[in-house]
Design a protein around this nucleic acid. Structure first.
Lengths: 225, 225
DNA sequence: CTTTACGCATGAAAATTCTGATTGTAGAAG
DNA sequence: CTTCTACAATCAGAATTTTCATGCGTAAAG
């Protein structure tokens, strides 16, 4: 799961990022609204942490802009001032949640997890496709009831595939979704082949073959018949 | 379990702390309301002991502020004056309990235990998983009836695991739940390995092996099959 | 039909990251 | 003052992730 942190205080931003990274989230940061909007355009984040008062504008306006594009889903507002007005305004503009500074990182983490569960799993903590079952709370994968031992990247990959079943995902999109690097490096995404191979192998070993298929020149698809 | 003691009299504060520490609680203290609010913002304590009259303000106002954030759960008011008005006001503002000075520390301890039981264990005082049994009232751990001698941190760790059985808990979450200093939260969580190792060792010595497993790159899980 | 270019599959090895035992330190207990 | 205990930092080994080299499959052009 990928999170964009919009926050100008570098110290706070990086401590949030390092905490969330340990929680297995992939984080990117933006110090200005301009930067944030650019990144949002380029990528659909699973959750957006939005500081409401940055040097280059007002976060509520950003939220307003996002609302017009129907992109307010997954937004958690972070505000220095615990003002009820801001809270109401933010939630009216479609934000999912509101957190006043200072907050505890575990609190933030819990809110993020709730937002993502609501948004990506329709409130469920399990995602099931035929004989394959992912329990996002336990972070386990089962095939026909038998546990599959996936590594973190493999787990993330399979989860992403199952959320986007029957859709072609490009190699780049997959690699980006999995990659921990904050930088936009278009270096070498070949490692994705290895991970896909490993996921396929582990699924096949438990009798769930033929789910992951390559579409030549396009990418991959998790196919459910 | 983590308790915040808000009390300006250093002698009382420290004697409460040392008593509760013996009861296996992790204690932090605040001598002013300003300090208290700051700490509360950063951490969700299991119980909050709130002296109602400190030099820098009135505890009821603090309670009022907490109520707006929905954080009055787990509050026990401590008051010098055994005034019925204060008591009613406090309980109306969402405090869980009220204790007039002077009080016996054992009385306080009993109230704390009741508040936590209500709040964290849905009124139960024992947590039992197969042959492992934690009695949160006696603060003892038994494996197949035989007592296990755990240190404070080990006890807290195991309890946290058992409350969250079959869920992967990140090193962050574990360390935060156990550590006393909020300041070094982002530093180094490696010490958690030591505690986990010790818990595993002590459980294994009594025949309860294979409960605590590390999930590489994700965290730890207390697994019940 | 053959050639060619490019995407994909695979295995192995290098690089990186994570884990848990060892060791060190401070503070409490005796 | 010594011993013991809880806690914190370090470090080597283990597991994972990434890179790389190689060969195969596919699709389009000659």
């Amino acid at each position: 799961m990928k999170i964009l942190i919009v926050e100008d205080e570098a110290a706070l931003s990086s401590s949030i990022a390092s905490y969330l990274k340990q929680e297995n989230y992939i984080c990117e940061t933006a110090a200005t609204y301009a930067q944030a909007l650019e990144k949002i355009d380029y990528y659909d984040y699973d959750c957006l942490l939005l500081d409401i008062s940055l040097p280059d504008g007002n976060g509520l306006q950003v939220l307003q802009a996002l609302k017009q594009d129907g992109k307010t889903d997954g937004v958690i507002i972070i505000s220095a001032k615990n003002s009820l007005d801001d809270k109401i305004a933010g939630l009216q503009l479609g934000a999912d949640d509101y957190l006043a500074k200072p907050f505890h990182l575990s609190e933030l983490s819990a809110r993020i997890s709730a937002v993502i569960r609501r948004r990506r799993f329709h409130g469920e903590s399990k995602i099931i496709v035929n004989e394959i079952e992912i329990d996002t709370a336990a972070k386990t994968v089962k095939v026909s009831g038998k546990p599959a031992e996936l590594t973190r990247k493999e787990y993330d990959l399979l989860l992403f595939f199952m959320i986007n079943k029957n859709r072609v995902l490009s190699k780049n999109a997959l690699a980006e979704h999995i990659s921990t690097s904050n930088d936009e490096v278009f270096d070498n995404f070949d490692f994705i082949y290895t991970h896909i191979k490993n996921v396929k192998k582990k699924l096949a070993a438990l009798g769930a073959a033929d789910y992951l298929n390559s579409i030549y020149g396009m990418g991959y698809k998790f196919e459910v018949r």
